[in-house]
């Protein structure tokens, strides 16, 4: 499926729509996504009735959500749709009203990348537990330093009758007083 052809047909269908082609994918505006997907699914010409994948990419300047559409009737695909949103306002309309199978994949993208899909029926974390903070697959996420006990760990251990060595306790107290969190060492960047 040639993306340039699809682009020109979409432009004929929706006058004034802005579409860019990047690496065989069509980059759409977030507000155009649902109507374009619905049109591609229902039109006799495309019949792209199978949403095989939703994934998210962190480009540091923005976040991107990628959709792969296939046609089970015509045996064509994938047609790649992309939607880009700024990091601080990462909101994309949900595709669940059009493709029911989008539900869990959007939950995954929300869990890992923090893109919130509007009108999603049940937008919760799917892999990480409720109460986990942050979005671990974003590039600026730094995991915890697992070798340092923090004050909440010390409190928890003492609640459960575990003796905590004095030096760990002292270090945790210092961390808490400094208002710091024990995070892993962030990799330094090096050009070669």
């Amino acid at each position: 499926m040639n993306p340039t052809e699809v682009k020109s047909k979409l432009e004929a269908q929706f006058p004034g729509i802005s579409i860019q082609i990047v690496n065989n994918g069509l980059v759409l505006k977030p507000e155009d996504l649902v109507r374009v997907a619905k049109f591609l699914k229902e039109s006799e010409e495309f019949k792209l009735n199978y949403l095989s994948l939703i994934t998210a990419v962190d480009y540091l300047e923005f976040l991107e959500s990628v959709y792969h559409l296939y046609s089970m009737d015509k045996r064509t695909g994938p047609l790649i749709l992309k939607v880009r949103v700024p990091r601080e306002r990462a909101t994309i309309p949900s595709l669940v009203p059009v493709f029911r199978g989008a539900e869990f994949q959007e939950r995954e993208a929300y869990d890992m990348m923090g893109i919130s899909y509007e009108d999603h029926p049940d937008l919760r974390r799917i892999f990480m537990w409720e109460g986990f903070e942050g979005y671990p697959l974003r590039k600026d996420y730094i995991p915890e330093d697992a070798d340092v006990l923090e004050w909440e760990d010390v409190e928890w251990l003492e609640r459960h009758d575990v003796k905590v060595p004095e030096e760990y306790k002292e270090f945790a107290r210092q961390l808490k007083a400094a208002g710091k969190e024990a995070r892993a060492v962030k990799p330094t960047e090096k050009e070669i």
Partner: peptide
């Protein structure tokens, strides 16, 4: 919120 509590059992 960041992982397991506690991080290890000393």
């Amino acid at each position: 919120p960041k992982g397991l509590i506690p991080k290890f059992n000393p």
